[in-house]
Design a protein around this nucleic acid. Structure first.
Lengths: 196, 196
DNA sequence: GAAGACATGTAATTTGTTACATGATTTT
DNA sequence: AAAATCATGTAACAAATTACATGTCTTC
């Protein structure tokens, strides 16, 4: 007899959270994905294969409900007949809050780059250098994007037009990217010095 | 007709890589897990459920082979009758090298902490503060461990007793943890300032 | 002889992506 | 009228963990 403890699916909380950002705006699955792409993308994403089944499940649990899209906003959008919009219910809000109070699970993450660097002794140093240079370039590109988002957001936060929390997550992205850039640069010189 | 492009399983390369670190030492599944726990743990881990089936698959593909454990080393260990030890073959070495030459895939990673912080407006600021303080503590503990590993390793690298590459991955861990600590501290003061 | 480390393995489940099918609406 | 975007959804696959079962060997 096997006793399997089910780990809770976190996708549902991500959806509940996005829907609760502005409760006056019902959102479709597509809207939720777009919102995530513009905000939580670098630390949380959902694919269609996860999103749509979870939306159905949340409706069954009465944590969200199907509503008419708000016509006042986005006049010329949201006219697609296929569109289904959802709003969070009080049950959903309670569930979201309870989750927010619990300690966050830590997600270990894999880095294929570091795995390849770790086994670097099996190939020419030029290979590791190439991998790190490639990552350095991606990080530098990403940093420019993050920094422009951060400066826009900081202005809105200063004017009290946006809560602080989005800015905090952007800051996290910036600091981690900067650390990675710093590591790439240091590692490149260490490998080059080691070759001689 | 569905055409599914199979993404390659990376577990096999992690195993091939570990077995190639010292080809004179055949290792068991247990040894491989131990080695990973002491080296790649923070950017790459494997569970038994992945490891053992992959070992069988690698044997079938003749990328590794079952060998007698090396009795010279670890005299008083490795006597367990159940123990099966593996060594990498030339086929396996070729496969490892080919993978090392390819560009590394980037793994997006999830952070439940950042997701909770992002939705911080729905709870009292004290909740977000508690989450961040808890993470700060974990990071500080982890940093101490990483730093002692790095200083040990740096000595061995300087004496040319160990390749540079392990040190590079430890450095990556240190820089990322430091960035996270830095973010926690900054975020705590931003939230506290924002409350007033 | 108990505890703890060593050692292998599997079943069930969870989690997530990829690639598609399908069609509406908007923009060029 | 073509292209791009908006929009929902599923089948197949891939990846990974969790919780066991089973047993050996070493140390106290």
């Amino acid at each position: 007899m096997t006793k399997i403890i089910k780990k809770e699916n976190k996708t549902q909380y991500a959806i509940l959270g996005i829907l609760s950002l502005d409760t006056s705006k019902p959102m479709s699955g597509y809207d939720i994905r777009k919102t995530m792409a513009n905000s939580t993308q670098y630390f949380w994403q959902e694919s269609n294969g996860q999103l749509y089944p979870t939306l159905s499940k949340l409706v069954l649990n009465k944590e969200i409900k199907i509503t008419q899209p708000n016509k006042d906003s986005n006049k010329n959008l949201a006219n697609n007949k296929n569109k289904i919009t959802y709003a969070i219910t009080n049950t959903g809000k309670k569930k979201l809050t309870q989750w927010l109070l619990k300690e966050a699970d830590y997600y270990t993450h894999r880095s294929e780059l570091l795995l390849k660097v770790f086994f670097g002794q099996h190939v020419d140093p030029a290979v590791s250098i190439k991998h790190i240079q490639s990552r350095l370039k991606s990080c530098q590109d990403q940093l420019i994007i993050f920094e422009s988002i951060a400066s826009e957001t900081a202005k809105l936060v200063a004017k009290k037009k946006q809560p602080l929390y989005f800015l905090l997550t952007v800051n996290a992205g910036i600091k981690l990217i900067q650390a990675e850039i710093n590591w790439c640069e240091e590692s490149l010189s260490l490998i080059k010095a080691n070759k001689k």
